[in-house]
Amino acid sequence: MVRICDIMHKGVIFCYPDDHIRDVARMMIENQFRSVVVVHESGEVWGLISMIDIIRFHGMNLENIIAEDVMRPYQISVDPQWPLEKAVEIMKRRKIEHLIIIDPHAGPKRPIGILTSFDIVRFMSRIETGQYQQMLKMPREESEDPRR
């Protein structure tokens, strides 16, 4: 059985509720994340900001907009020991792309990782990490053969 903790990203990228949205957007672009967890100073999860949430503010003056205005409150509690099927079920039912994984042992609402729909696609494709180069080389080797 595959558990959530086997394929999730360990650690979360977070910001505080009063961070400026432009800084959050820059952080996302520079590091190629598609979501940022909003964490209260106490370390509890408050919400999640995805790209869709940011583009709602397109065309507005971003100076006075902070993360708290943009985030969607996050209420779902996902345990890292659950089987992957359960995560897929939640994503399908709620039509969301990102799940914040919360460790019950670290205290209430402490985020320890994130699971995205792309992680599940990667799992389903059965390509091991580090084998991408080989996958990319395959067609080229075939096309070189006739010339030899």
């Binding site: 432009r22 957007a25 820059r26 996302m28 672009i29 598609r34 790209m51 869709i52 940011i54 583009i55 503010f57 397109h58 971003l62």
Partner: peptide, 12 residues
């Protein structure tokens, strides 16, 4: 892509 729009907003 949504990320290109976010990029434009962040750099504006």
């Amino acid at each position: 892509h949504a990320e290109d729009i976010v990029n434009r907003m962040a750099m504006a």
